[in-house]
Write a protein that binds this DNA or RNA. Structure first.
Length: 298
DNA sequence: AACCAGGCGCATG
DNA sequence: CATGCGCATGGT
Protein backbone atom coordinates (compact mmCIF):
# COMPACT_ATOMS: atom_id res chain seq x y z
CA UNK A 1 0.00 0.00 0.00
CA UNK A 2 1.38 3.43 -0.90
CA UNK A 3 2.72 5.07 2.23
CA UNK A 4 4.04 8.56 2.67
CA UNK A 5 5.95 9.80 5.69
CA UNK A 6 5.74 13.46 6.51
CA UNK A 7 8.36 14.43 9.11
CA UNK A 8 7.09 16.47 12.04
CA UNK A 9 8.91 18.42 14.72
CA UNK A 10 8.53 18.25 18.50
CA UNK A 11 5.58 20.66 18.66
CA UNK A 12 3.28 18.20 16.99
CA UNK A 13 0.91 15.78 18.63
CA UNK A 14 -1.08 13.30 16.60
CA UNK A 15 -3.24 12.64 19.63
CA UNK A 16 -4.16 16.31 20.11
CA UNK A 17 -4.91 16.83 16.42
CA UNK A 18 -6.92 13.66 16.24
CA UNK A 19 -8.83 14.72 19.33
CA UNK A 20 -9.69 18.11 17.85
CA UNK A 21 -11.08 16.46 14.72
CA UNK A 22 -13.25 14.26 16.91
CA UNK A 23 -14.34 16.37 19.90
CA UNK A 24 -17.46 14.32 20.61
CA UNK A 25 -19.04 15.65 17.45
CA UNK A 26 -20.02 13.74 14.37
CA UNK A 27 -18.15 15.45 11.57
CA UNK A 28 -18.96 13.75 8.28
CA UNK A 29 -15.86 15.11 6.54
CA UNK A 30 -13.56 12.54 8.11
CA UNK A 31 -13.65 9.33 10.09
CA UNK A 32 -11.76 9.34 13.36
CA UNK A 33 -10.68 5.98 14.71
CA UNK A 34 -8.57 4.99 17.67
CA UNK A 35 -5.22 5.32 15.95
CA UNK A 36 -6.00 6.83 12.58
CA UNK A 37 -7.99 9.46 10.74
CA UNK A 38 -9.45 8.72 7.33
CA UNK A 39 -10.54 11.28 4.79
CA UNK A 40 -11.58 11.37 1.16
CA UNK A 41 -9.72 13.90 -0.97
CA UNK A 42 -10.18 15.27 -4.44
CA UNK A 43 -6.72 15.96 -5.81
CA UNK A 44 -5.98 16.83 -9.42
CA UNK A 45 -9.34 15.39 -10.36
CA UNK A 46 -8.69 12.09 -8.57
CA UNK A 47 -10.85 10.85 -5.72
CA UNK A 48 -8.60 9.36 -3.06
CA UNK A 49 -8.99 7.94 0.41
CA UNK A 50 -6.14 8.56 2.80
CA UNK A 51 -5.43 7.39 6.31
CA UNK A 52 -3.30 9.40 8.73
CA UNK A 53 -1.59 7.79 11.67
CA UNK A 54 1.26 8.34 14.04
CA UNK A 55 4.82 7.33 13.48
CA UNK A 56 8.03 8.24 15.23
CA UNK A 57 8.72 11.88 14.42
CA UNK A 58 6.43 11.68 11.43
CA UNK A 59 2.89 11.55 10.22
CA UNK A 60 2.18 8.41 8.22
CA UNK A 61 -0.17 8.85 5.30
CA UNK A 62 -1.47 5.78 3.54
CA UNK A 63 -3.39 6.00 0.31
CA UNK A 64 -6.12 3.44 0.92
CA UNK A 65 -7.82 3.99 -2.39
CA UNK A 66 -7.06 5.77 -5.61
CA UNK A 67 -4.17 5.97 -8.06
CA UNK A 68 -0.56 6.15 -6.94
CA UNK A 69 1.88 8.31 -8.88
CA UNK A 70 4.80 10.45 -7.72
CA UNK A 71 2.91 13.59 -8.66
CA UNK A 72 -0.12 12.55 -6.63
CA UNK A 73 2.03 11.65 -3.65
CA UNK A 74 3.49 15.10 -3.76
CA UNK A 75 0.02 16.64 -4.03
CA UNK A 76 -1.27 14.52 -1.14
CA UNK A 77 1.71 15.56 0.98
CA UNK A 78 1.02 19.20 0.20
CA UNK A 79 -2.65 18.80 1.02
CA UNK A 80 -2.03 17.15 4.40
CA UNK A 81 0.69 19.65 5.24
CA UNK A 82 -1.79 22.43 4.65
CA UNK A 83 -4.70 20.68 6.36
CA UNK A 84 -2.77 19.94 9.57
CA UNK A 85 -0.63 23.08 9.36
CA UNK A 86 2.54 21.02 9.57
CA UNK A 87 4.93 23.61 8.17
CA UNK A 88 4.33 26.21 10.85
CA UNK A 89 6.95 26.61 13.56
CA UNK A 90 4.89 26.97 16.74
CA UNK A 91 7.79 27.91 18.98
CA UNK A 92 7.04 31.67 19.04
CA UNK A 93 3.45 30.94 20.02
CA UNK A 94 4.56 28.64 22.81
CA UNK A 95 6.99 31.25 24.08
CA UNK A 96 4.16 33.75 24.20
CA UNK A 97 1.78 31.33 25.93
CA UNK A 98 4.43 30.54 28.53
CA UNK A 99 4.53 34.21 29.54
CA UNK A 100 0.82 34.36 30.20
CA UNK A 101 -0.17 33.48 33.73
CA UNK A 102 -3.64 32.07 33.11
CA UNK A 103 -2.83 30.43 29.78
CA UNK A 104 0.62 29.00 30.40
CA UNK A 105 -0.83 25.57 31.25
CA UNK A 106 -1.95 25.19 27.64
CA UNK A 107 1.60 24.77 26.39
CA UNK A 108 1.82 21.54 28.34
CA UNK A 109 -1.78 20.34 28.26
CA UNK A 110 -2.39 20.90 24.55
CA UNK A 111 1.17 20.52 23.37
CA UNK A 112 1.37 19.86 19.67
CA UNK A 113 -2.18 20.83 18.80
CA UNK A 114 -2.26 22.35 15.32
CA UNK A 115 -4.74 24.51 13.50
CA UNK A 116 -6.76 21.91 11.62
CA UNK A 117 -7.71 23.73 8.46
CA UNK A 118 -10.29 23.45 5.74
CA UNK A 119 -8.41 23.74 2.47
CA UNK A 120 -11.64 24.09 0.47
CA UNK A 121 -12.71 27.73 0.89
CA UNK A 122 -16.24 27.05 -0.29
CA UNK A 123 -16.55 24.38 2.37
CA UNK A 124 -15.17 26.70 5.05
CA UNK A 125 -17.62 29.48 4.26
CA UNK A 126 -20.57 27.11 3.90
CA UNK A 127 -19.73 25.38 7.13
CA UNK A 128 -19.45 28.70 8.94
CA UNK A 129 -22.87 29.74 7.65
CA UNK A 130 -24.37 26.43 8.71
CA UNK A 131 -22.94 26.89 12.19
CA UNK A 132 -24.11 30.44 12.73
CA UNK A 133 -26.08 30.89 15.93
CA UNK A 134 -26.95 27.23 16.53
CA UNK A 135 -25.33 24.69 18.77
CA UNK A 136 -22.55 22.65 17.23
CA UNK A 137 -24.25 19.29 17.57
CA UNK A 138 -27.14 20.51 15.48
CA UNK A 139 -24.79 22.22 13.04
CA UNK A 140 -22.92 18.97 12.42
CA UNK A 141 -26.23 17.22 11.81
CA UNK A 142 -27.24 19.83 9.27
CA UNK A 143 -23.88 19.52 7.55
CA UNK A 144 -24.19 15.76 7.38
CA UNK A 145 -27.62 15.96 5.76
CA UNK A 146 -26.28 18.40 3.17
CA UNK A 147 -23.13 16.42 2.44
CA UNK A 148 -24.85 13.05 2.22
CA UNK A 149 -27.36 14.44 -0.26
CA UNK A 150 -25.18 16.66 -2.47
CA UNK A 151 -21.61 15.50 -1.91
CA UNK A 152 -19.86 12.76 -3.84
CA UNK A 153 -18.42 9.86 -1.94
CA UNK A 154 -16.06 6.96 -2.10
CA UNK A 155 -16.77 3.49 -0.77
CA UNK A 156 -14.22 1.67 1.31
CA UNK A 157 -14.68 -1.44 3.46
CA UNK A 158 -18.40 -0.92 3.73
CA UNK A 159 -18.38 2.75 4.67
CA UNK A 160 -18.82 5.90 2.65
CA UNK A 161 -16.31 8.74 2.76
CA UNK A 162 -17.69 12.05 1.59
CA UNK A 163 -16.38 15.12 -0.11
CA UNK A 164 -18.07 18.42 0.62
CA UNK A 165 -20.42 19.30 -2.28
CA UNK A 166 -19.06 21.48 -5.05
CA UNK A 167 -20.72 24.87 -5.55
CA UNK A 168 -22.29 23.48 -8.70
CA UNK A 169 -23.74 20.49 -6.88
CA UNK A 170 -25.11 22.67 -4.11
CA UNK A 171 -26.75 24.97 -6.62
CA UNK A 172 -28.89 22.04 -7.66
CA UNK A 173 -30.43 22.01 -4.18
CA UNK A 174 -33.87 23.53 -4.03
CA UNK A 175 -34.92 25.73 -1.12
CA UNK A 176 -37.64 23.18 -0.38
CA UNK A 177 -35.12 20.34 -0.10
CA UNK A 178 -32.94 22.36 2.23
CA UNK A 179 -35.89 23.49 4.30
CA UNK A 180 -36.88 19.85 4.74
CA UNK A 181 -33.39 19.28 6.15
CA UNK A 182 -34.17 21.99 8.75
CA UNK A 183 -32.04 24.75 7.33
CA UNK A 184 -33.59 28.13 8.10
CA UNK A 185 -34.80 30.29 5.23
CA UNK A 186 -31.90 32.71 5.75
CA UNK A 187 -29.29 29.98 5.70
CA UNK A 188 -30.80 28.54 2.55
CA UNK A 189 -30.51 31.90 0.86
CA UNK A 190 -26.99 32.47 2.12
CA UNK A 191 -25.76 29.04 1.07
CA UNK A 192 -27.24 29.24 -2.40
CA UNK A 193 -25.87 32.75 -2.86
CA UNK A 194 -22.39 31.63 -1.87
CA UNK A 195 -22.60 28.59 -4.15
CA UNK A 196 -23.58 30.85 -7.02
CA UNK A 197 -20.73 33.26 -6.25
CA UNK A 198 -18.19 30.45 -6.36
CA UNK A 199 -19.73 28.80 -9.41
CA UNK A 200 -19.98 31.95 -11.48
CA UNK A 201 -16.37 32.83 -10.65
CA UNK A 202 -17.26 35.86 -8.58
CA UNK A 203 -15.06 34.51 -5.85
CA UNK A 204 -12.36 31.87 -5.52
CA UNK A 205 -9.59 30.94 -3.14
CA UNK A 206 -6.93 31.75 -5.71
CA UNK A 207 -8.28 35.25 -6.28
CA UNK A 208 -8.60 35.83 -2.56
CA UNK A 209 -5.00 34.78 -1.96
CA UNK A 210 -3.90 37.15 -4.71
CA UNK A 211 -5.43 40.16 -2.95
CA UNK A 212 -2.92 42.50 -1.32
CA UNK A 213 -3.77 42.07 2.35
CA UNK A 214 -6.01 40.68 5.04
CA UNK A 215 -8.40 43.62 4.96
CA UNK A 216 -8.94 43.22 1.23
CA UNK A 217 -9.64 39.49 1.59
CA UNK A 218 -12.01 40.19 4.44
CA UNK A 219 -13.87 42.82 2.40
CA UNK A 220 -14.26 40.43 -0.52
CA UNK A 221 -15.94 37.89 1.75
CA UNK A 222 -18.08 40.43 3.60
CA UNK A 223 -19.65 41.36 0.26
CA UNK A 224 -21.44 37.99 0.32
CA UNK A 225 -24.90 37.97 1.90
CA UNK A 226 -24.77 35.92 5.06
CA UNK A 227 -21.07 36.49 5.60
CA UNK A 228 -20.39 38.82 8.52
CA UNK A 229 -17.19 39.46 10.39
CA UNK A 230 -17.35 36.17 12.28
CA UNK A 231 -17.87 34.05 9.16
CA UNK A 232 -15.29 35.94 7.09
CA UNK A 233 -12.61 35.67 9.75
CA UNK A 234 -13.43 32.04 10.50
CA UNK A 235 -13.04 31.15 6.83
CA UNK A 236 -9.82 33.16 6.50
CA UNK A 237 -8.43 31.41 9.55
CA UNK A 238 -9.44 27.87 8.53
CA UNK A 239 -8.93 27.99 4.79
CA UNK A 240 -6.35 30.68 4.08
CA UNK A 241 -4.60 30.11 7.40
CA UNK A 242 -4.46 33.81 8.14
CA UNK A 243 -2.53 33.72 11.42
CA UNK A 244 -3.99 36.97 12.71
CA UNK A 245 -7.63 36.19 12.04
CA UNK A 246 -10.06 36.28 14.98
CA UNK A 247 -13.71 35.19 14.69
CA UNK A 248 -14.92 38.20 16.66
CA UNK A 249 -18.01 37.63 18.74
CA UNK A 250 -17.63 33.86 18.68
CA UNK A 251 -19.74 32.36 21.46
CA UNK A 252 -17.22 29.69 22.33
CA UNK A 253 -14.34 32.12 22.34
CA UNK A 254 -16.18 34.45 24.72
CA UNK A 255 -17.06 31.59 27.01
CA UNK A 256 -13.46 30.43 27.09
CA UNK A 257 -12.29 33.96 27.91
CA UNK A 258 -14.87 34.16 30.71
CA UNK A 259 -13.86 30.77 32.06
CA UNK A 260 -10.26 31.97 32.32
CA UNK A 261 -11.41 35.27 33.89
CA UNK A 262 -9.73 37.12 31.04
CA UNK A 263 -12.80 39.30 30.48
CA UNK A 264 -15.36 40.58 32.97
CA UNK A 265 -18.29 40.03 30.62
CA UNK A 266 -19.00 39.25 26.99
CA UNK A 267 -18.93 42.89 25.95
CA UNK A 268 -15.48 43.52 27.40
CA UNK A 269 -13.94 44.33 24.04
CA UNK A 270 -10.99 46.22 25.46
CA UNK A 271 -9.77 43.26 27.47
CA UNK A 272 -10.11 41.06 24.41
CA UNK A 273 -8.10 43.51 22.36
CA UNK A 274 -5.42 43.70 25.04
CA UNK A 275 -5.12 39.93 25.22
CA UNK A 276 -4.87 39.38 21.48
CA UNK A 277 -2.36 42.21 21.18
CA UNK A 278 0.02 40.04 23.18
CA UNK A 279 -0.37 37.31 20.58
CA UNK A 280 0.16 39.39 17.47
CA UNK A 281 0.61 37.08 14.51
CA UNK A 282 -0.73 34.12 16.50
CA UNK A 283 -4.30 35.24 17.15
CA UNK A 284 -5.80 32.30 15.29
CA UNK A 285 -3.72 29.85 17.32
CA UNK A 286 -4.86 31.48 20.52
CA UNK A 287 -8.46 31.02 19.36
CA UNK A 288 -7.84 27.35 18.58
CA UNK A 289 -6.29 26.74 21.98
CA UNK A 290 -9.14 28.58 23.73
CA UNK A 291 -11.66 26.45 21.82
CA UNK A 292 -9.67 23.43 22.89
CA UNK A 293 -10.05 24.49 26.50
CA UNK A 294 -13.84 24.34 26.28
CA UNK A 295 -13.87 20.58 26.01
CA UNK A 296 -15.50 18.55 28.66
CA UNK A 297 -13.35 15.75 29.89
CA UNK A 298 -14.19 12.35 28.47
C1' DA B 1 -38.35 25.23 31.33
C1' DA B 2 -35.96 29.10 30.14
C1' DC B 3 -31.91 30.28 27.95
C1' DC B 4 -28.12 29.81 25.01
C1' DA B 5 -26.04 28.03 20.62
C1' DG B 6 -18.67 28.71 16.95
C1' DG B 7 -24.41 35.30 13.73
C1' DC B 8 -26.52 38.01 10.29
C1' DG B 9 -29.38 41.33 7.93
C1' DC B 10 -32.54 44.54 8.32
C1' DA B 11 -35.60 47.91 10.62
C1' DT B 12 -35.67 51.57 13.84
C1' DG B 13 -34.15 55.53 17.15
C1' DC C 1 -23.76 54.97 14.85
C1' DA C 2 -26.21 51.92 18.24
C1' DT C 3 -29.68 48.90 19.55
C1' DG C 4 -33.38 45.42 18.84
C1' DC C 5 -35.59 41.71 16.52
C1' DG C 6 -36.56 37.38 13.93
C1' DC C 7 -34.73 33.34 12.51
C1' DA C 8 -35.34 27.60 13.59
C1' DT C 9 -34.38 24.17 16.67
C1' DG C 10 -31.34 21.27 19.60
C1' DG C 11 -28.88 21.01 24.11
C1' DT C 12 -28.54 21.71 28.86
Amino acid sequence: MPTIRIPVGPLFSFRECRWFLHRNFDDCMHVVEEDQVKKALLIDGHLLLVSLSEEKEALRVQVLKGPDTPALRKAVTDYITDWWDLDRDLLPFYQQIAKHKQLAYMAADYKGLRLLGMPDLFEAISWAIIGQQINLSFAYKLKRRLVEKYGTHLDHEGSKHYLFPSPEALMRATPEDLRAMQFSQQKIRYLLTVAEAFFSGGISKQELIALPDFAARQQALLALKGVGIWTANYALMKSLKEPGSIPHGDAGLLNALLAHSLIKDKSDLRAIERLFAKFAGWESYLVIYLWRSLAKMD
